[in-house]
Design a binder for these strands. Structure first.
Lengths: 231, 231
DNA sequence: CGTTTGAATCTGGTATACCAAAAAATTCTT
DNA sequence: AAGAATTTTTTGGTATACCAGATTCAAACG
């Protein structure tokens, strides 16, 4: 028995397609078409779509094709607020619960991020970003609260694309570097209040940056929407 | 087209069965058996099980029947901590975002809870408890942050049974009444700090109470496990 | 030429049939 | 009689076939 990795596998593939922009917001995800494309049956693909729907990456509509979610600014801000609360809790708990090894690992991620951040361009940006995500995920796991880590991961996944667009900017990269460093320092000194403050600052800055991105998007031509629907 | 209410319908039925204790923690949920019992096919039942799994009510195991989750004390405490963070955020946001009507509705729920709390016994306890849940849900919705409300609801659902066992106790009922009142006062005066503090106290007390319940359960015979497996 | 109506088609929802892996039971061996 | 190996059964995973609602496009009517 294969323990149903297939649905999860498909979900993973779709997730990447969505986040990389291959599947643009608003695009329909038709059960039949995608199933034959991937060479699988509709059943597991259907299940995969449900998984993504729970994560908020796709939107189910009654009697309609599911579509790739296209969150509004408010929705993104709402999600970041929740993420912030979750991550602050993670950081505070991590101060108490994390092992030294775990904190060392977080520092390591921070430094790898630092090293890559200055030079990265093109495809390396994706790697940079994945390290960024791993950094935050590691903090959530260091809370030793699996439920928290899981929910945190779900929110992170949901906003992957938005965060990616934000993190890629040069000016944001500078800021992220120092903020990550501050968070690590707080963890190393096991200072929950400081960690909370730093994470708060970090994610508050993210909200500001995302807001700016959305405003840019509304004026000027679009960075996130693909051009295919103009064809 | 029926917009797939079937799976959701089944999930709802199973959820109630689990929470009322008809399906005890550890019980397997076999696809075939339950499907024929409910007179539906395996496909929607399977989907329903996945929904409950995402909510944390059932536990999927590779190559095994899913079983009704039987959370340990640590897991419950972990979940309540997350719930607390979510609910504090809800309360703080509600102070800023909620309409007067929404706050009035929350007060109404608090008062209905109060009225029922003193006299309720037997089946009325379920109604009492549903009002309790509605109270907390209303606060989450009053945050005007749908993502937050949804995640909060998921955590609430996950711990329905534990909270039920806690809320039914006479001594807990007394405490809950005054704490609800305090939260409402904070909302009415639009005082985020106070609301945060009160919710914190409320849920911290819940953790204490749940811990006590678990200790009781470990000594003496079991209140939550049904007796069927001794047959 | 515009509007309306109906049929063809596309979509997701549901049921069922089949397969492989894991548990359980039985039997064969020692 | 005890243990191990094999066979049988049970379970979930996957594919496929069928159904009903919704959309859309076209033709006919005003």
């Amino acid at each position: 028995m294969t323990a149903s990795p297939l649905a999860e596998q498909i979900a993973q593939k779709l997730r990447r397609d969505i986040l990389r922009g291959k599947l643009a917001p608003g695009d329909p995800i038709k059960e039949r078409d995608n199933a034959v494309d991937l060479g699988v049956s509709r059943t597991p693909l259907r299940e995969a779509v449900r998984i993504l729907a729970k994560e908020g990456l796709v939107q189910l509509r009654p009697a309609r094709s599911p579509i790739v979610a296209d969150p509004s600014l408010k929705e993104v801000r709402d999600a970041v607020m929740v993420l912030k609360a979750l991550e602050i809790l993670s950081g505070e708990l991590a101060c108490r619960e994390a092992s030294d090894a775990e904190i060392a690992e977080i520092r390591d991620l921070s430094e790898r991020h630092l090293a890559l951040s200055e030079t990265a361009e093109g495809d390396a940006l994706i790697e940079l970003f994945e390290i960024d995500m791993a950094f935050h995920t590691a903090i959530a796991r260091a809370s030793h609260n699996p439920a928290l880590a899981e929910t945190h991961a779900a929110y992170l996944a949901r906003m992957w694309r938005q965060r990616y667009l934000s993190a890629v900017q040069r000016r944001a990269r500078e800021r992220v570097r120092t903020q990550h460093e501050n968070i690590v320092r707080g963890l190393e000194t096991r200072d929950p209040a400081r960690v909370g403050t730093e994470i708060d600052a970090h994610l508050s800055a993210l909200i500001v940056n995302l807001t700016r991105l959305f405003e840019l998007r509304e004026s000027g031509r679009d960075l996130t929407t693909n051009e295919k629907d103009i064809e």
